[in-house]
Every structure is written in structure tokens, then in C-alpha cells.
Computed example of a mutant assay.
Amino acid sequence: MVAAAALALAWLIDSRFGEPRSAWHPVAWFGRIAAPLGRRVHSWAAPAAFAAGAVLWCSLVAAVAGAAFAVEQAAGAAPAWIAIPLLAAALKPTFAWRMLNDEVRAVEAALGQGLEQGQARVARLCSRDVTQLDAAAVRETAIETLAENFNDSLVAPLFWFLVAGLPGAWAWRAANTLDAMWGYRGPWEWAGKWAARADDVMGYVPARLAALLLWRPSVGVARLTREAPLTPSPNGGWPMAAMAFRIGVRLGKPGAYALNAQAPAPDAAALTNALTVGEGAARGAIAAALLLVVLKVNLW
């Protein structure tokens, strides 16, 4: 029951306080360690860059998972009144639902001040050229970010916590962070290839669970499975397509893909609806995770 109590407390901490400042955030510390290592190898010739990227990925993820294992073991040897807050404090940085919610909500507030303000705000959430986006496209981008990161920032760390405890949650967070830093084409093509593929593999099941939490049965499974693979990411399209169908809007990237293409572009009400749907799905994810943690403890 310690694990369930720690998970509940971690969720309460996230709901109440959100993210700590970067100077105190373990994920930020991890990024500051990983960044210079990646820069050393990304300009190497393809075979050497790929091998070095793979070795670095394995080393960094193993180090993070090992540190999480040590914390978990220490908690296991401590009384519950110490173990629960210790595990909660260690688990909380692996997910970031409140921050995601707040950032997406801020996009609509910024659009209320003007298109340029909305573009500047959504640029914090994506890597695409926002200067060419109109208000509808800004909202599309914000809703896509909410849906995709519902998986990356909540469902996937919960899934790996259920599979492998605190080390699993932190292995996912490290892998997803390395993909965000290295998993690009261009100069990072080979050094980041292992990170990108590892993220795809680790996120495969969670992305489909995230889509299930966002999905509504009236859409039909066939339609979801037909449109989800339209995105370049093998996983990102699942929660994004589920969200597009759930709130009845088109989501897409110009010149790349369109999900639920015949639906209208999102307006302000659609973005608000997406936030409401996301919040309900997040609560459902936490409730399911808590139930499964309790069942796991009772079974074993």
C-alpha cells in the first residue's frame, strides 16, 4: 500500500504545486548532464555516431534507473511515514500534468491578446515554425501538444511505474528526455537514432492506452486505427487522433498530415473542451494506476 499512497501523494503534489523551478528539477539536472555528451558525438561519422549514441543512451538511462532503484530500496527499508513521502517526492518529477495543462490554457489567453502573442506562446510547446500559423492552427498545435503529452508526461510514466516501479518511471523519463534532445533528423540523424527508436518502443503500449482513455466508442475502433498512423510518429498519432474525434475538430500539421480532416478547425471553445477532456482522462489514468498498484500488491 506504500506504493499506492506514494502515487496518490505525488499526484496531489503535481495538482497543487506543478513543477519545481529548473534549478531544483531532477529532469533539468539530467538534461544538463546529457546535453554536452550528445554534442560531442553528433557530428561523428554515421557508424561511430550511432554506436556512441546507443552507448550513451544505455549508460544514462541505466544510471537514472539505478539511482531510482536505490531510492526505492531505501524507502522499502524505512517505516511508512518516511517511505511514502520519499517515494512520492522521487516519483513526482517523472510526470508533469499540471504544467502541461497550464501551458496549453495559456495559449488561449495569449490569443485573446492577439495572434502574435498566441504564436509566441505556442512556440513554447512545439518546434514548428509558428509565424505561419493562424489562430486556428495555433489552437490545433496546442491541442495536439496536450494530447501527445498526455501520453508522454502522464500515461507512459504511470505505465512504467506499474511495470517496474520507480526505476521504470525514471527510465521512461530519461528515455523521453533524450529523445526530445537527440531524436531529430539532420545533424542528429545518427547520434539520436537509438534514442528516437527506444522512445518509440517504450511508448508503444502507453500511447495506445492514452488513446483509449481519450477515445469515445461512437467513433469506432476502425476509424481510430486508420487515422492514428497518419502522423510521422508511430505513437503520437494515437492520442492526437483520439482527441480529434473526441472533441470533433481537425488536427494536423500543414503539408504533413490531417486527423479528422473533414471536421472544422478548433475554436476557443474546442480548446477549452480539449482541456476538460484531458483533465477527465488524466483523473481516469491516475485512478486506474492506483487500482492496478493495489491489485499488484495483493496478488504478489
Rank of each mutant, 00 (worst) to 15 (best):
V2N: 10
V2Y: 05
A3I: 02
A4P: 01
A5F: 07
L9K: 04
L9F: 00
L9T: 00
L12Y: 00
S15P: 04
G18Q: 10
G18V: 09
R21N: 01
S22K: 11
S22Y: 03
H25N: 14
V27M: 06
A28C: 12
W29C: 02
R32C: 08
I33G: 04
V41P: 08
W44M: 14
A46Y: 07
A48P: 01
A49G: 11
A51Y: 06
L56P: 00
S59Y: 02
S59D: 02
F69H: 14
F69S: 15
V71C: 12
E72L: 01
A74P: 06
A77K: 13
A78V: 07
P79S: 12
P79V: 11
I82E: 01
A90E: 05
L91D: 11
K92P: 06
P93E: 03
P93G: 03
R98K: 14
R98L: 14
M99T: 13
N101T: 03
N101S: 14
E103D: 13
A106T: 07
E108M: 09
A109H: 12
L111F: 07
G114N: 07
L115F: 00
Q119G: 00
V122E: 02
A123E: 12
R124C: 13
R124W: 12
R124H: 15
L125H: 02
C126Y: 01
T131F: 04
D134E: 02
D134F: 05
V138Y: 07
I143G: 03
E148I: 07
E148L: 09
S153W: 02
S153K: 03
A156T: 06
F159E: 03
F161M: 02
A164P: 03
G168P: 11
A169Y: 07
W170R: 07
R173A: 05
A174I: 09
A175S: 15
A180K: 04
R185E: 13
G186T: 05
G186C: 05
G192M: 09
G192V: 10
W194E: 03
A196P: 10
A198W: 08
D199S: 08
D200E: 11
V201T: 13
M202F: 15
V205S: 01
V205W: 14
R208A: 03
A210F: 09
A211K: 01
W215I: 04
W215S: 04
V219T: 15
V219P: 02
G220C: 09
V221N: 02
V221R: 15
L224H: 04
T225H: 14
E227V: 02
A228K: 13
T231V: 09
P232L: 10
S233I: 05
N235F: 05
P239T: 10
P239C: 11
M243C: 11
M243R: 12
A244W: 10
F245G: 15
R246L: 05
R246D: 10
G248A: 09
V249N: 07
R250A: 14
L251A: 07
K253C: 01
K253G: 07
A263K: 11
P264F: 10
A265F: 07
P266V: 06
P266W: 08
A269K: 12
A269E: 15
A269G: 13
L271W: 04
T272I: 00
N273G: 12
A274T: 12
A274E: 10
L275K: 01
A281Y: 11
A282M: 08
A282S: 12
R283F: 08
G284Q: 03
A285G: 11
A289T: 15
V293E: 10
V294F: 06
V294M: 09
